[in-house]
Nucleic acid binder design. Structure first.
Lengths: 305, 305
DNA sequence: GCGTTCATGTACAAAATTGTACAGCCAATT
DNA sequence: AATTGGCTGTACAATTTTGTACATGAACGC
């Protein structure tokens, strides 16, 4: 009589992915299973839904005709998924927080106190920069410098983070004159990541030149600078807290980033998500001076205490 | 990760039916299967969706919270189901037509010619009076005296059918005077079916009395009249075509019924549905005199030829 | 041309799901 | 009180589904 609803889920994934192997991976099943279940659906529907090419599956016009409704099913299923978060244990459970690696490092350094505060909550911290799809619950919370223009995502500003130049004390000077920029070695981001804060600013001062050492990761940039590999523009909360780094000059007025805490509206009132949000917001409030670059030498001070 | 979409379909049916046994029957599976799959869904979602009473399942508030989205999934799935009708063979396939038993009998008597005309179409004729849900494809077409007030259902008027009094020739008179009504035996419908055409009219002439022999089925009423069990009000297309029945008087001006052909908009353009519709419409056109009671004695005439 | 990688397709064993039969409980009827 | 009918729950055999391993073909790089 009726098609198996779950076979429609598999149909949709295959239509999106285009190959059995990627769809199978995405669905967490084997590729013959995907093929078999799509074949079963085709038999149920009575029409061929895919052309089978040697290297991929292409939806037929019949398959295309079913996509819109299948996507509607998916949206409803996702809504169920989000609602289900509110149906389980209200105070305990997993909360997944995602942030760039530089914010993840900051949070990681505060994990003991976060864990002490969030006693019943399993706290997953994952480091990545790309904006996750919170509607699909790829994460419950995300800290990001960008806000998506999705109606269901709520953004709460955490801080405006300042950036400054840092170097190992063995090579650091108190201040860099404009003419000296090109005569010191630099560590920075590669060409694919010039959108990271400060990279464009540095390029202008190097007259379009690039750092001698390039990476795609803030923590790698920081490690290189700590090893006296060169001067680097870093977020103050990374540089000022590090005893192996010395600030060079003041925070750069033109280089900053806003950090936003993102949550899906459906999850916002969930007690355990609320608890993690509050803990993160409090942490950023307490660390505001460090965020804004008002704690130069904080790394050295901590070592003395 | 995600709930099995098909388990949601089972959840929805159980929420509606209220018992494992009726849900299982509706779904075409065994009752332990329904229980197991709902339990699996509860585990996946992480919440109890039903309270289990000794005689039924009652949705919890958590279960209630998921109904709306699950119904949205169902609507999309039904849309897929309807669309799939247009994806299979365009000229062959099954068309299911439903009508009351008295119309079904008329159609059945014309089955040979309908079959000759609809050569590639499997034609299912089912007799029932209740309005089916064409959106759910409980039937593809329905002939009914009522039209549903649903936006997606298209109604085409087939005929206005006349009704008259009939009796076996051994007891029939040419005309019944008003005072004679109460002195002859009557066959009619039981108290639950007084909405059938003519029953109220007869009751008034019997001063609120009821037929001596009562049924809930036109064909049973006709068989009883044919066996000289009494006088009966019947549709003319049943009475006039029957050599064992003689009309008593003229068709009753105040007793008639309109017959409508109902189809879901999505199916209307489907060639095989279109073909059955056309055949049915043509049949009613050709039989219009019989429908309107202008063929008294048609049964006898046919016997002579 | 050859080797590698990636794709779909196939067959069999393993795993999962389902149906059947039964048990126990409760309510209604005789 | 006994019987009947309906319900949910359980256990085991039967059936179905799935994963694994392999085959084949195509595309790409050396």
């Amino acid at each position: 009589m009726n098609a198996n609803w779950d076979d429609l889920r598999i149909f949709l994934t295959l239509a999106r992915e285009g190959t059995l192997t990627t769809a199978a991976k995405s669905l967490g099943v084997s590729h013959p299973t995907v093929a078999r279940r799509v074949a079963a659906l085709e038999q149920q529907i009575g029409a061929r839904l895919f052309e089978r090419l040697p290297d991929r599956f292409v939806p037929t016009s019949a398959g295309e005709a079913l996509l819109e409704d299948t996507e509607a099913m998916e949206n409803a299923a996702l809504s169920i998924h989000r609602r289900s978060a509110g149906l389980s244990d209200t105070v305990s459970g997993v909360v997944r927080l995602s942030a760039g690696e530089e914010i993840s490092a900051l949070l990681a350094s505060h994990l003991p106190e976060l864990r002490a505060r969030l006693t019943q909550i399993e706290f997953e911290l994952s480091a990545r920069h790309t904006l996750l799809n919170l509607s699909r619950r790829e994460a419950d919370l995300q800290i990001s410098e960008r806000t998506p223009d999705m109606a269901d995502i709520v953004a709460r500003k955490l801080a405006r983070t300042a950036y400054a130049i840092y170097a190992h004390p063995s090579i650091a000077v108190a201040r860099l004159s404009p003419s000296a920029f090109k005569s010191v070695p630099w560590v920075g981001f590669d060409d694919d990541h010039t959108r990271m804060p400060g990279q464009r600013w540095l390029q202008e001062r190097l007259d379009g030149g690039r750092p001698a050492i390039r990476s795609n990761n803030w923590l790698v940039v920081r490690e290189t600078a700590r090893a006296a590999g060169g001067y680097a523009i870093l977020p103050c909360y990374l540089g000022d807290a590090d005893p192996q780094l010395q600030r060079v000059g003041n925070p750069i007025a033109d280089v900053f980033a806003d950090q936003w805490l993102l949550v899906h509206r459906d999850l916002r009132a969930l007690p355990r998500v609320r608890a993690v949000m509050d803990a993160v917001i409090d942490l950023f409030q307490r660390e505001r001076p460090l965020m804004e670059g008002r704690m130069a030498g904080a790394g050295n001070r901590e070592r003395r205490s």
